[in-house]
Simulated scan of single mutants.
Amino acid sequence: MKPYTIISMCALALASCTGNSTKSVDTTTTADTTKADMLNSPSQNMEYCFLRTEGSNNQDTTAVHLVINAGKVTGEMQWIPKEKDARKGALEGTIAGNDIKAVWTFSQEGMKDTLGVAFQLSAQELAQKPFKVVKDGRQQTDGAAGYTITYKLDNCTKFKTGVKPAL
């Protein structure tokens, strides 16, 4: 009977050891990847403001204000070139992943117009597909182009206070 008792005790000891085992997992790569993803991907239910200046003395300004809520995007966009008529108006669209498709309803020279816009959003930057002029002289987003127009993250005081971007 002694051999059966010893075998039974060994089996019990082995079973209890395997039930309490812990696996060692290297989480440094996972943690680093998660931090990088958080910095590069946009947050939902968030407000963003971006600014772009261009021209010979950075005198032309475009400001974009986005409010993202449950896959919907609203906001405004202001294109304010030096010595030209500005375009100012509302944005309304959707976001899927990092891609925003919206319609910009703006006023310019007392006339209202609309223009489809395509953006790619990250937590630190906004990129836009450029416009192209079509046969009737109107502009439209160049769907074949890359997201080559970049905006820097900015605070939203320009939109909240009604102060216009610097000219």
Rank of each mutant, 00 (worst) to 15 (best):
L121P: 12
L121G: 10
L121K: 05
S122G: 15
A123I: 00
A123V: 00
A123E: 14
Q124T: 15
Q124H: 12
E125A: 14
L126D: 12
L126Y: 07
L126M: 10
L126E: 11
A127R: 15
A127W: 01
Q128F: 04
K129T: 08
K129H: 06
P130M: 04
F131G: 01
F131K: 05
F131R: 05
V133R: 13
V133A: 10
V133H: 02
V133E: 05
V134I: 15
V134P: 01
K135D: 14
K135N: 11
K135H: 02
K135V: 05
D136E: 05
D136Y: 01
D136L: 03
D136K: 03
D136G: 01
G137P: 03
R138S: 14
R138C: 06
R138I: 00
Q140K: 13
Q140M: 11
Q140A: 12
Q140N: 07
T141E: 04
D142E: 09
D142H: 02
D142M: 04
D142G: 04
A144W: 02
A145K: 02
A145H: 01
Y147R: 01
Y147Q: 05
Y147N: 04
T148F: 04
T148I: 14
T148V: 14
I149T: 06
Y151S: 06
Y151G: 05
Y151W: 08
Y151E: 07
Y151K: 09
K152R: 12
K152I: 09
K152C: 03
L153K: 15
L153Y: 08
L153H: 11
D154R: 07
D154C: 10
N155P: 00
N155H: 08
T157E: 13
T157W: 10
T157C: 00
T157Y: 13
K158T: 04
K158Y: 14
F159P: 04
K160A: 12
K160H: 11
K160G: 00
T161C: 07
T161K: 06
T161G: 13
